[in-house]
Every structure is written in structure tokens, then in C-alpha cells.
């Protein structure tokens, strides 16, 4: 894909070019306002790119209807707030919407049970979504996206509201599912270390432009972090993954940090 996007006159993304292979996890990292979430939303056509195209198996998503797109891309937002009471079962059942009309059949209920069991949350089925914890909610949203039976999962900061245990649980669940179902994922993530541990490739965005892309080791270098985040950091090798230890912000670094 090849994307440009801007709100009104301010360009947010410029000449972003990405490719995603089957059963690959791609992380998008970058400082606040770099365009991570915007990119995810463009891919999903929640926002429409002004220029460029996004190809899914060779066909441009512009030509797909929302329903067709929803059968291929599952989107997992940062958090969920239902305006009205809804049970977890019903929320996951919403994921079946792209596949059927206005009625759900037995088959759809079975599919919902499948994903609930896969994520080990079937005991939450009849609970109200707004009354369970953030980590549990995140799993329900993953379940809803899986009920869509998509080829690609899009995740927008899946761990930002979670404690460390839930972060690991959620990320483990995502990785297992991707391997089991042979699908791919694109994930916007703040936590560099979590991103590096759970993804095959990383893309570092800076002000809407790709600053670095490739394996976690080639992206998370001291240089890149200094240049993009304006932070002096140390990168260690921890169990075969790069581990970033931030040290101190650099003063007057190209507007990335201003005091």
C-alpha cells in the first residue's frame, strides 16, 4: 500500500509505503502524533486517504463495499464504550454482522462460542461489557474481530489501557491466534519493547513519514530512537529481542520535545 492522508490542510501521512505478508505481525511505532492511528484508520477506510491506494490481495479497497471490507479486515479499537447495556455475547455476535443480514442463526452463535472459548472468556459471556475490566474488554474486542473471520487484524494500541499481566495475556492471545488462523496483523503500539517482542517486522513513523522499517533489531537502534523520539536510549539484547531502556530526553531536538 501507498498512502497519503491529511486532516483539512495539514498532512498527517506522506508517502507511506508498506507491504504485509501472510501470517506476519507488523508493528507501527512512533511518537505521539506521528500518524500511527491515522494509518490504521486509513487502511480500514474509517478515514479515506487523499492519495494512494491500499491493495488487498491485489485489489484496491476503494472498490470494495464496507461490508466486503469488513469480511477481510478486523479492527480492534483501543477501548470500547457501549452507550447502552450489552452482554459480551451480543457484542461478539456483532462481529458476525458483515456475514449475514439482520438475523443471526445457530451457526453464528456457534462461531461466537468458538471465539469465546479460544480466548478463554466464555465465563464472561452473559456479563455486561461495560462492567468488566479493561483487559477483559480488550479480549472481547479481539473476539469480536475474530468473529468477523478476517484475513488481517488491525490493532490500535491494544495494550495501552492494560496492566503488565493483561498486556502479556492479550499479546500472547493475538500471537497464538495469528499463527493458528494463518492471518496477519498490523498493530499500532506505543510500547517499543512489547512491539519488538511480538512482531516480525516494525515500521517507525515520524511526522507521517517512515523513518525506519525492517526487523525489530534494525529499527530499534540508538540512532533511530534519538532521531525520531528525541530520546537518549540504550538498546540491549534481551532473550533475542531488542530491549530499549530510555535514558533522557535530548533538549531542542527538532521540535520533538520542547520545554
Amino acid at each position: 500500500m501507498d498512502v497519503e492522508f491529511g486532516y483539512a490542510s495539514t498532512p498527517i501521512l506522506q508517502g507511506v509505503h508498506l507491504e504485509l505478508a501472510k501470517s506476519e505481525v507488523l508493528s507501527i511505532v512512533g511518537p505521539n502524533g506521528a500518524g500511527k492511528s491515522t494509518l490504521i484508520r486509513c487502511i480500514n477506510r474509517i478515514l479515506n486517504p487523499q492519495k494512494g491506494s491500499i491493495l488487498l490481495d491485489g485489489s484496491d479497497i476503494i472498490h470494495l463495499t464496507r461490508m466486503e471490507l469488513a469480511r477481510q479486515l478486523g479492527y480492534i479499537p483501543q477501548s470500547d464504550h457501549q452507550s447502552f447495556p450489552a452482554t459480551v455475547f451480543d457484542v461478539v455476535l456483532m462481529g458476525r454482522r458483515p456475514h449475514i443480514g439482520w438475523r443471526s442463526g445457530q451457526n453464528d452463535k456457534e462461531k461466537v462460542l468458538d471465539v469465546l472459548q479460544m480466548l478463554n472468556i466464555e465465563n464472561l459471556a452473559m456479563r455486561d461489557i461495560n462492567e468488566i475490566s479493561g483487559g477483559q474488554q480488550q479480549k472481547v474486542l479481539i473476539a469480536r474481530a475474530l468473529a468477523q473471520e478476517p484475513d488481517v487484524l488491525l490493532l490500535d494500541e491494544p495494550t495501552s489501557n492494560l496492566d503488565i499481566r493483561h498486556q502479556l495475556e492479550v499479546m500472547d492471545a493475538i500471537r497464538t491466534l495469528i499463527a493458528e488462523k494463518n492471518i496477519s496483523a498490523i498493530m499500532a503500539i506505543h510500547d517499543l519493547n512489547l512491539g519488538s517482542r511480538y512482531s516480525d517486522r516494525m515500521v517507525m513513523l515520524n511526522k507521517g513519514v517512515i523513518a525506519a522499517a525492517g526487523s525489530p533489531f534494525s529499527v530499534l537502534t540508538q540512532d533511530n530512537i534519538k532521531r525520531v523520539y528525541g530520546v537518549e536510549a540504550m538498546v540491549k539484547d534481551e532473550d533475542g529481542f531488542p530491549y530499549v531502556v530510555p535514558k533522557s530526553p535530548i533538549k531542542n531536538n527538532g521540535g520533538a520535545i520542547s520545554f
Binding site: 484508520r41 469488513a70 456483532m94 439482520w102
Partner: peptide, 23 residues
């Protein structure tokens, strides 16, 4: 009534509803 499921999906917010195929 025919739109009632779409209405349910819209209860999760515009973005989520769009990603689930609702116009």
C-alpha cells in the same frame, strides 16, 4: 426493525461500526 442490528453495532461508536461494515 430491519436496521435494528446495525443500531446495536452503532452503539459501540462510529469507528467500530464502520469497521464492522455499517454505513
Amino acid at each position: 426493525m430491519w436496521k435494528s442490528w446495525d443500531l446495536n453495532v452503532m452503539g459501540s461508536g462510529d469507528e467500530a461500526a464502520k469497521s464492522l461494515g455499517i454505513n
